[in-house]
């Protein structure tokens, strides 16, 4: 049994979970929703084992390091954190329909990693040989994952808002399994309340590492700048909500924009801009 087999099982499980969640929306049967959650949980356990195994495999190859060092590993970890945050929100609030809009993000990640990225385990270049790598990557990705969950919830909000706005007669149908519109708004805020402190920690640990390794905690490198942009967007979200009463539709749109900026920070910067961060090169 190798980690890559386990990662394949993970991918298939997330696909199954996604399908079950869609079946749940269509069938409106509670047990189906629960099955979707269990499938996601199973995938999560397998993926955790796979990540641990890959970590061990890197030691077997003689240059052990946490599996967080290249694009493949970061995408896999991102999808793991998305399911982790989803599980927390699912177990706490039990709105199963959210799974149909969040698990697909994790599925995309795993499918891209398994089918499109080079999965070789490489030794760490000198710049990455630091424990700060772990603190930095873990906090950033947990933050990103919370924003992914908030984005999924916001999309649900926008769909519900649009369909109900058009004609109230349609409000049944697939929507009947969605949480109430107020609940969606609240969940969006709660997910961002998880993500914002984590992103803040991610930026701070990144700055601490940069200072430790290069002597500057901030150099306006594109990745740094984009993480700050994301931070500004969510800070604006929090303030607009509390002080200007931007809730509901506007908050949902801001949350989707925030996640788009997050994804650009994570992937776009490496694809379109150049800088210090080595993922995706």
């Amino acid at each position: 049994m190798s980690s890559s087999m386990l990662f394949n099982i993970t991918m298939v499980t997330y696909m199954v979970s996604t399908c079950i969640f869609f079946a749940f929306l269509a069938s409106k049967t509670k047990a189906v929703g629960l099955a979707g959650t269990y499938a996601a949980l199973f995938g999560f356990v397998v993926q955790t084992a796979a990540i641990a195994m890959r970590w061990k495999e890197s030691y077997d190859q003689g240059h052990g390091h946490a599996p967080l060092s290249n694009l493949y590993e970061s995408v896999v970890f991102f999808s793991w954190t998305i399911i982790l945050i989803f599980m927390i929100i699912d177990f706490r609030y039990k709105y199963r329909a959210v799974g149909a809009f969040v698990v697909p993000f994790a599925l995309f990640g795993m499918a891209w990693a398994q089918l499109g990225l080079d999965s070789g385990i490489e030794p760490l270049v000198p710049a990455l040989q630091s424990n700060w790598l772990m603190y930095h990557v873990i906090t950033c990705f947990l933050g990103y994952a919370a924003f992914a969950v908030a984005c999924g919830i916001s999309i649900m909000y926008l769909i519900r808002d649009k369909m109900e706005g058009g004609s109230s007669a349609q409000a049944g149908g697939i929507l009947s399994m969605f949480p109430a519109i107020k609940v969606l708004d609240d969940l969006n805020y709660k997910a961002i309340m998880i993500g914002f402190p984590l992103l803040t920690l991610g930026i701070v640990t990144g700055a601490a590492w940069a200072n430790y390794a290069w002597g500057t905690y901030w150099s306006w490198d594109p990745k740094e700048t984009w993480s700050l942009i994301v931070w500004f967007v969510y800070a604006a979200f929090l303030h607009a909500r509390i002080t200007r009463g931007w809730v509901g539709r506007r908050a949902a749109i801001l949350s989707v924009i925030g996640f788009a900026a997050t994804i650009f920070c994570y992937l776009g910067v490496n694809l379109f801009l150049s800088g210090l961060h080595s993922y995706g090169k």
């Binding site: 700048t225 500004f232 967007v233 604006a236 303030h239």
Partner: peptide
């Protein structure tokens, strides 16, 4: 809010 969004948007230029 204007400043936060303004800083976010203008920061893009330098990247």
């Amino acid at each position: 809010i204007f400043l936060l969004i303004g800083l976010a948007l203008t920061s893009i230029i330098g990247t």
